[in-house]
Amino acid sequence: MVGTLGHIFEAEGLATVAIAAIRGQIEKAAPPRALYAEFPLGRPLGKPNDSEYQRRVIDAAFALFDASEGPVLVDFPEIIEDDSADRLTCTIPPRFDADLHPAIDEAIGVRPAYDRTVQRTGTTSVGRAGSADDIPSMLEAFIRIGNGTPHSRAAVPGGDVLAAAMDVRSYYEEVAQSLADHVPGARQVDTWLYSQTEAGDVIHAAQRALHDTDGVPRPVWYYLMPMMHSRIER
């Protein structure tokens, strides 16, 4: 979309340069000026909390204003790979209430870490299907779905399976901000959530059950988690 916006703004008299994340798309869109930066998706300036690196990226983009005609498409000279294969050290508190489902116990146990993050940032991305208070209820609904209850009758808070799945993801992302021993690398939190947590196991089971149930539209199960973490064959 940045390519399209570039064309529109230039026609309105604004000079633009786009940082592009997917080369095939920016080649086709061909806006007047674009810097292709092969960084982890979601990190167009390259490195969080690294002002010098971010400035280098902006300087490289603004250097394209020296061109007298376009379209200009230049590659940033450095590539940053995502860190999805690197294990995140993010210790979850031990079980507290053995009578609860492990995922529910876990979600309650990490709540103080979530609260610390929200207190620090002043904002949260949880809120699509419910608040942080509703995360255990969302997980209970996904447990029911994983056990075969149709998603329409699983009492998903807010009634939207995708919204609830994204809230669980946001909750754990914000938990990890306080539990991890460093700023998580790109995709590390995803890998941690979907391969090392009880909540991740619950979402996987729900996705499998939805996939295996006749009549469930593909988007309902497909978008339940980032595509690369799904265990369903595509």
Binding site: P40, L41, G42, R43, P44, L45, G46, K47, P48, N49, S51, Q54, R55, I58, D82, T117, T121, T123, T124, S125, G127, M166, R169, S170, E173, E174, A176, Q177, V183, P184, G185, A186, R187, Q188, V189, D190, Y223, M225, P226, M227, M228
Partner: peptide
């Protein structure tokens, strides 16, 4: 709030430093 619908990008960078997407400090 990062309210994008897609699941297919990293959000931890933004959670740590919004300049990674919106470089106002830069």
């Amino acid at each position: 709030t990062l309210s994008h619908r897609s699941q297919n990008f990293d959000r931890a960078g933004f959670n740590s430093d919004i300049n990674i997407v919106l470089p106002m400090d830069r």
